[in-house]
């Protein structure tokens, strides 16, 4: 009988990343709901980091060790996790929905003849022990409740921000169990990670940001938003598709693969509000959203919203701002 919950603790450059603690909170809450023990797994060349995470409330910590785990590759991680999952036979394997997990978790699940319930926001467990996962579909516009008819193990990932890292419980020191894992041929050879040369525009210090999304429709219309930004004394920014299309340089992009900003005022014009955009701007002081779709997810984090055509809103708003500023 498979039992327990296994949580994957991700680390890079010698430290756990923040979302790992969110995954731990998710796994612990699932464990409480289902009355099942939670075990953490750390993949590494030695037990150093595993001892660190043992401070959390776990049944035990598995330190899966092999020299090939010194750096991340999907081949090595998949082999190692497959070994651990087979050895522990957990009911659920919980992971954070990071770029690294996206890169190997589907491969791992495929080894068990299934896929991952990916990018979840919540779960609901009933007395009978069945679990409903909720995940966001259509780029954040709709939620879907999902059940899986899989035998164990069920693989699930949770989206950044779905759980609060501070809610992960500390314990009295979980035992750390070293497990030597077998890893076959590793076909990918990573070079050291790097950052591009410093960006020309630093939006992190901007007080006011006027951001445009695909709703702006064409490059010529960007001038409209520029005039509004000028009237407000702010900077222009954009969602990814605008930069992908080459309408604005990449250093104007806000989001998980762009800049993270926290201005006093963020005006989102024709931006739908996909999670990858929201993570870059949700800490702004006042958020304004203009969108013709009343269900656009951007409204979920907006202080002020206008449901309507941005081409009606921008010129009027620019005029009004100029008037008020005198």
């Amino acid at each position: 009988m498979s039992n327990g919950i296994l949580v994957f603790a991700e680390h890079r450059a010698g430290a756990f990343n923040k979302i790992t603690f969110e995954a731990i909170a998710a796994a612990q809450q699932l464990g409480t709901s289902l009355k099942q023990p939670v075990t953490a797994v750390v993949l590494n060349k030695d037990a150093g980091l595993a001892r660190e995470i043992a401070a959390f409330n776990f049944d035990k910590v598995i330190s899966a060790e092999n020299d090939k785990l010194a750096e991340y590759t999907p081949d090595a991680y998949t082999d190692a996790m497959q070994h651990v999952v087979r050895a522990l036979d957990p009911r659920y394997v919980i992971m954070p929905h990071t770029y690294l997990v996206r890169d190997f978790a589907p491969k791992l699940a495929a080894r068990f003849g299934r896929s991952v319930v990916s990018d979840c926001l919540r779960f609901a467990a009933d007395d009978g022990g069945s679990v409903v996962f909720s995940r966001r579909i259509f780029l954040g516009k709709i939620d879907a409740d999902v059940v899986t008819e899989d035998e164990s193990p069920v693989f699930a990932t949770f989206q950044s921000g779905a759980f609060r890292g501070e809610q992960s419980e500390k314990g009295t020191g979980a035992p750390v169990e070293s497990m030597a894992v077998e890893i076959g041929e590793v076909r990918m050879h990573p070079e050291p990670a790097f950052q591009e040369v410093k960006q020309a525009v630093d939006l992190s210090k901007a007080d006011v940001i006027v951001a445009i999304g695909r709703g702006i429709k064409s490059q010529e219309h960007i001038a409209l938003a520029e005039q509004l930004a000028a009237a407000l004394g702010g900077d222009l920014a954009a969602s990814r598709p605008i930069c992908d299309a080459g309408w604005l340089p990449i250093d104007r992009q806000i989001g998980s693969s762009g800049q993270t900003v926290a201005p006093k005022l963020y005006i989102a014009l024709g931006i739908s509000g996909a999670i990858q955009h929201l993570v870059g701007m949700k800490n702004a002081g006042t958020i304004v959203a203009v969108n013709k779709d009343p269900e656009a997810p951007i409204f979920d984090i907006a202080d002020y919203g206008i449901v309507g055509d941005l081409f009606d809103v921008i010129p009027t708003l620019t005029e009004e701002v100029k008037k008020l500023k005198g």
């Binding site: 999907p74 996206r102 890169d103 978790a105 589907p106 896929s115 991952v116 990018d119 579909i137 780029l139």
Partner: peptide, 8 residues
């Protein structure tokens, strides 16, 4: 939005 088909 599974983000899995290619990897599998």
């Amino acid at each position: 939005g599974f983000a899995q088909t290619g990897v599998i």
